[in-house]
């Protein structure tokens, strides 16, 4: 087990290094002058001042040097300075992390609960038309853009009925609308994957066995199909969390909330490349961490995975399958 964890950690480190490299290539190695972009075409800046800014941010060094120096600093936890915010990138990100984590966490909980409930109800509803009606919801959750859903909720629940505040970040009431907006696509994805898994499981022979033992239909689904169907849904969690982070960009704009999403739009608009790179790395790190957690959790849910690496070695030759 320890070796497995070590191997996975090495892999995670590799992905982070590669994400750093990819973002460096995209942001710094592509033709284009970040300083010129930063100061803008109309700004009245002399060549000397531009050169001074370049050397201040180390942009006048050869690309390879910039890359290696940046990588060395990144391993020490220093992602450089944000040109716009005039503070270290890590500080800017750390300040915005809390509100987004709170929002994404709430959205993940609500989205998962809604998705699971929807999928189960759609499989177990007594009448066919009820199932059909319930199954139209998940594709909707995936297709409706979050800016539309957010504005719709604002229009109805905030402006018309004044149930929740329209913007800001104070108290749980201000969290409801953005969390719902962010949860909808997550719920849609979970419900679709889980419903497909349940439908698949419903066709499996072990479900006939389960019914033949005397399980009622709902009980057979809850006790036998759900756990089998949850496995593919679980592997989606990494993508889902990444999607929530990306969703925060739109949602925090719609509801005028502080957080990583707002920081991202500000960084992109100001072409604050160091900050953008830092945010990309945060996204990749989150994805890697969640996937690592899922991979470590997976064997607990699927015994077929747990025993595969435990296969007894020593026998050099096995003649039977």
């Amino acid at each position: 087990m320890a070796r497995y964890v070590l191997a996975r950690l090495t892999q995670a480190a590799f992905v982070l290094w590669a994400a750093y490299t990819v973002s460096f290539v995209v942001l710094f190695a592509l033709p284009g002058d970040p300083v010129a972009l930063m100061v803008g075409p109309d700004a009245n800046v002399t060549e000397e001042q531009m050169a001074a800014i370049r050397s201040q941010y180390g942009l006048d060094r050869p690309l390879a040097v910039q890359y290696l120096a940046g990588l060395a600093e990144a391993t020490r936890g220093d992602l450089g300075d944000s040109m716009q915010a005039r503070q270290p990138v890590t500080t800017a990100i750390a300040e915005s992390f809390g509100p987004t984590a709170k929002l994404a966490g709430a959205a993940l909980v609500v989205g998962t609960a809604a998705g699971v409930l929807l999928a189960l109800l759609a499989m177990l509803a007594p009448r066919p038309w009820q199932r059909t009606a319930l199954l139209t919801l998940p594709p909707l959750g995936v297709a409706v853009p979050s800016f539309l859903l957010g504005l719709l909720l604002l229009h109805l629940l905030s402006f018309r009925w004044q149930l929740f505040p329209a913007s800001g970040d104070d108290g749980w009431r201000s969290l409801v609308l953005p969390a719902l907006t962010m949860a909808a696509p997550a719920a849609g994805v979970i419900a679709q994957v889980l419903a497909a898994g349940l439908r698949q499981a419903g066709r499996e022979d072990y479900m006939v066995t389960a019914r033949a033992k005397g399980n009622s239909r709902p009980r057979a689904y809850a006790r036998h199909a759900l756990r089998n169907a949850a496995l593919p849904a679980l592997t989606m969690t990494g993508l889902l969390v990444g999607g929530l982070l990306a969703g925060s960009v739109v949602v925090e704009t719609v509801f005028a909330r502080p957080g990583l999403g707002r920081l991202t739009t500000m960084a992109v608009s100001a072409q604050d490349l160091a900050l953008v790179q830092g945010l990309v790395l945060v996204g990749a790190a989150l994805f890697v961490l969640v996937n690592l957690a899922v991979d470590l959790l997976y064997p607990l849910l699927d015994p077929r995975v747990a025993t595969a690496p435990r296969r007894r070695a020593g026998v050099r030759q096995i003649t039977a399958l």
Binding site: D205, Y206, T209, A212, H224, N228, P303, R304
Partner: peptide, 16 residues
Amino acid sequence: IALVPQDPGTGLNPVQ
């Protein structure tokens, strides 16, 4: 009334 199903490979719940 009980059942002995056809395929022992798929007749049992794989995660139980």
